[in-house]
Amino acid sequence: MPYKLVVVGASLGGLHAVAALLGALSPDFPLPLAIVQHRHKESDETLRIVLQRSSGLAVCEVEDKQPISPGTACLAPPDYHLLVEQGTYALSTDEPEMYARPSIDVLFESAADAYGPNVIGVILTGASADGARGLATIKAAGGLTVVQDPATAECDVMPRAALDAGVADHVMPIPEIAALLTRLGTVVPKVGV
């Protein structure tokens, strides 16, 4: 299955975890990454700047209807839900879900809806159960599900909640997640018969 999009959810402890993940991906990693990191609604650009410093990929905060581009890591802006449509990102200020806006479930469920089996969902560290339902939706749509090994997470609540949903294809520490994404991202789709 040629994958077309990686969605990542992180909460408490996510700054280091997302930085480690992006830092371990090569600058020519071909898939687009959409990231929800829980944070305060009045956050400034610090997160983007810190992540950019640790990554060779372009890191941006999403603007409404921004095209989904390969090799770009896109962050949900503070106080907006990030959603995936065919070919573009979309934003909304609908009510928070599980106290979170941006919500990981909202991103994951919309990604599964738009890209079905071509999505890879990744749950990292966090102190919330957000993302577990979304990961199950990705799995049900035929996508691939990855959860950070709770023993290696700064906060294991979110990875454990995702594991309790019983839908994880892979449970591994961040360096191995990066290696897996690299391998899956560079699979060349078969052409012809």
């Binding site: 959603l83 995936v84 449509e85 979309a90 909304s92 909202v106 469920e109 919309s110």
Partner: peptide
């Protein structure tokens, strides 16, 4: 309307 969020609503 943008479909992804409309569908949720």
């Amino acid at each position: 309307y943008a479909l992804a969020s409309l569908k949720r609503r």
